[in-house]
């Protein structure tokens, strides 16, 4: 099967297709995903700028709370932000590739976007599992004390 760009596509095993309704839903999903990513990205950039501008008072405040562990705490915080950005990158990849795939009628781009979304939800699910495990561990520990 060839698409409009001339590339060979994997044949559809099913009768279900990306209909006009699905295209509309995908467009809307991408639009809202982009919006939320811009908001989150803007917030992170704003937070980093504030942290850079007011680094002295933040450092003093952290030092009063964590003492010699200040830089470990700050480093952990930066690593968590980087991991979070990478996590959001999957969502960005999904929205971008699906949008491009829809525009160019390229099923492989759409497929790559959907694969990114799958990884995003798998990581979200693992995060959810870790959250529940932590919660159960906390409750059990609270019961013992």
């Amino acid at each position: 099967m060839e698409d409009l760009t001339g590339e060979t596509q994997a044949p559809s095993l099913f009768d279900i297709t990306i209909s006009e309704s699905v295209i509309y839903s995908f467009e809307q999903i991408c639009k809202w995903v982009f919006f939320q990513l811009y908001v989150v990205g803007g917030s992170i950039v704003l937070g980093v700028l504030i942290a850079l501008l007011d680094s002295d008072s933040i450092e003093r405040s952290l030092y009063s709370k964590f003492g010699e562990y200040t830089y470990y705490v700050a480093g952990t915080f930066v690593i968590v932000i980087i991991i979070y950005c990478a996590f959001l990158g999957l969502l960005f990849n999904f929205a971008l590739k699906v949008k491009k795939g829809m525009a160019k009628q390229d099923v492989q781009k759409v497929e790559q976007g959907v694969a990114s979304l799958k990884i995003y939800f798998i990581l979200s699910g693992i995060g959810g599992m870790l959250y529940i495990l932590t919660l159960v561990f906390g409750v059990v520990r609270l019961g013992y004390t």
Binding site: D3, Q9, A10, T17, S19, E20, V107, E111, V114, I122
Partner: peptide, 25 residues
């Protein structure tokens, strides 16, 4: 409620497996 496909993008077996995984998670 529209069923018509604008273009011939079918959902192949790879996309189907991705969609099943997404739905389960």
């Amino acid at each position: 409620t529209e069923q018509s496909s604008l273009f011939t993008l079918g959902i192949d077996d790879i996309t189907q497996s991705h969609l099943i995984s997404i739905a389960k998670w």
